[in-house]
């Protein structure tokens, strides 16, 4: 496996998937940083792991379900207390449906 070149186009594509707007002047540096890291990470390909199961968690016992009990959660005011913008007792966001006002 050879390292895929992470070029400007790929950085911009990943940035879009990550909901990150990048500044034009940081794209080349990020591409260079990411290439160096990915090249280093490629050493994982040196080992044949075809028969090795992946570790998804290191838990030593099965997680237990908690009791399904009703507990008091945050009040509306508490939940909204740190919101940048509140309207009609809810989180306000820019319009995201075409034709809505």
């Amino acid at each position: 496996m050879s390292a895929p070149a992470i070029d400007r186009t790929r950085v911009l594509h990943i940035a879009k998937l990550s909901a990150l707007s990048l500044h034009e002047n940081e794209v080349d540096q990020l591409a260079s940083d990411l290439n160096a890291i990915v090249k280093y990470v490629d050493e994982l390909a040196e080992v044949d792991m075809s028969d090795v199961p992946p570790t998804t968690q290191v838990q030593f016992e099965a997680s237990l379900w908690r009791e399904d009990e009703v507990v008091v959660g945050l009040t509306r005011d508490q939940a909204l207390s740190s919101a940048p913008q509140v309207e009609h007792e809810g989180f306000a966001v820019p319009v995201f449906v075409e034709g809505a006002s």
Partner: peptide
Amino acid sequence: VRYGLRKAAQSLGEMYGATR
């Protein structure tokens, strides 16, 4: 949306990107 910094933008997608 729910806490912390927000950068104003015309659309929701732009707001996410600019904020982050």
